[in-house]
Amino acid sequence: MLELSILGFLAEEPLHGYELKERIKALSGHVRPVSDGALYPAITRLIKAGKLDEHTEPGASAAPRRILSLTDRGRADLLEHLRHPKQVEITDQVRFNTVLSFLRHLPDRREQAEVLRRRLEFLTAPTSFFYEDGKPVRAEEAEDLFRQGMLRVARATGEAERAWLTDAIAQLDPPN
């Protein structure tokens, strides 16, 4: 997801490393913080792979800044990743939000809708945080107050997301 975030933010505009880190942190930092020890090696790998370009600009009042921009190869990689996210990027809420953050860069509305359909299909399957005799436990069935709370919040969030996904898919790929 770090590489997707790097490619996605640089698809919007060239940035220096600190600005890029701050944007990634704003997107998912409270849940999955990004360290310099992860970010800068990832940037180096993407430069070596020809997906990013870098040049140096003078700093405002400090040392020169390394400005990063997306190459054509990087843009193609971003689009391919958005077209075909891994299953965990569909099922994991934080990872899906990262995909969703950059899905607008995918130019084909039907392809955008297909990614949303995958998420909607996942959210439609019966599931729970807790199971009894192999069956999902619903909020009304949980005896523990705190588990009831988890299940009620998850149900409300899931209902809202399914409604939005249904609307978005209809707008992106209306039925004939």
Rank of each mutant, 00 (worst) to 15 (best):
H81V: 00
I90G: 03
A11W: 08
N97W: 08
E140N: 07
A163C: 01
E13R: 15
A38I: 05
E57L: 06
P33G: 02
L145C: 00
E159S: 01
D144R: 11
D53V: 03
A142E: 15
A49E: 15
R138S: 06
E141K: 07
A168F: 04
H55T: 04
Y131C: 04
F122Q: 10
E141M: 05
A49S: 14
E111P: 01
F146K: 13
I43R: 02
L123R: 11
P175L: 09
L4V: 09
G8T: 09
P41N: 12
A170S: 12
T44M: 02
T44D: 12
L15K: 10
L10M: 04
G149A: 11
H81C: 03
T157M: 07
G17L: 00
E114L: 02
P174H: 09
L151M: 11
N97L: 09
E12G: 10
P85N: 09
S101G: 08
D72E: 15
E12W: 05
D108W: 11
E22L: 07
R23E: 11
V99M: 06
L82M: 08
Q171I: 00
R109Q: 14
E141S: 03
K51Y: 11
P174D: 10
D133H: 14
S61A: 08
R119F: 03
R118W: 11
R32S: 09
K21T: 01
I67V: 14
S61R: 13
P58H: 05
A76M: 09
E80R: 14
R152N: 09
L46T: 02
L82P: 03
T56K: 09
L165E: 07
T98L: 10
A168W: 05
R162C: 02
Q112K: 13
H55A: 00
A168G: 02
P58Q: 09
L145R: 14
T91A: 09
F146L: 13
G149H: 14
Y18L: 05
E89H: 13
R152T: 14
E89A: 08
